[in-house]
Amino acid sequence: MIIKFGAPWVVLVALLALPDLALAERVFVSNEKDNTISVIDAEKLEVVETIQVGRRPRSMVLSTNGEWLFVAVGDDEAVDVIDLSTLEVIGSQSSGPDPEVIRVDPHRPYLYISNEDDNIVTVLDYERRSRVTVVPVGVEPEGLAISPDGKWIVNTTETSNMAHFIDLESFDVVHNVLVDARPRHAEFTKDGSEVWVSAEIGATVSVIDMDDFAIKETIHFDVRGVPRETVQAVGVELTSDGRYGFVALGPSNRVAVVDQQTYEVLDYILVGQRVWHLALNQDESRLFTTNGVSGDVTVIDVDSMRAVKSIPVGRFPWGVVVAP
């Protein structure tokens, strides 16, 4: 009797336990100075694995099929490919000089790369492992963002202070919008109606309306008791419900919480030193920040808008990606 009933129980328990194990989110953090990727278990909030990659890893992006993580390794002039099931580097593709930010096309096997050194955006076909084209832009291309409908890619150029809008059909630069000094990052709203562009030295976020490619709002940041110059806007993350925008404010060690509808700054959350990039988890209950100087990741609880934990990672953590 016992044995008869025991076996199904074991199966049942296994079934209940499995999804939990398989679905535990993982947070990938690129450590610019260590040439490693730290893998954090998003439930336990601790580093569970460290992956050795090429030199100077910065931007990362998940492949559309969800199987790989692409990592731009700047000093190797390449993009490393990590298999998400084995956490091993399974390949590397030449990227053009000094790749900084990379993004993946939602419909085609294309990888977009900002080549900081060459004033171009490179388009790679990662299935054929070939270069599709290069698009000339302004000086020091950095931030890249693809519109949700896959029609546009926005590229920010740090010295030209521009957001360049590239038509993804023709690969032509169609619009150029002057933003504040040293634009770093671009992020589309979920509905694709706006793109938010942060400016590091200007310490602002320009909200660009996709109907007329004009700046509809400039968000300013002012952290009480902190020197104005240390407030530098870098990473941006937007909740998909249209409620909040989060902006990493660099060496002021704060993340700003912005109302996505009114553009009002609601709060500043103290995090680690020189906060750089941000990522929300799948259900958007938690925000992860990379803190370059203190070498850790701060976990923010979105409900309470409080920092709940800091997790030591490698040296100079730069980018962060959450894999479901």
Binding site: D118, I120, V134, D172, V173, V174
Partner: peptide
């Protein structure tokens, strides 16, 4: 030179 010889030189000129 900066733009690369082989690259399409279709700079957008507003």
């Amino acid at each position: 030179l900066t733009m690369g010889g082989a690259v399409s030189l279709a700079w957008p000129t507003q």
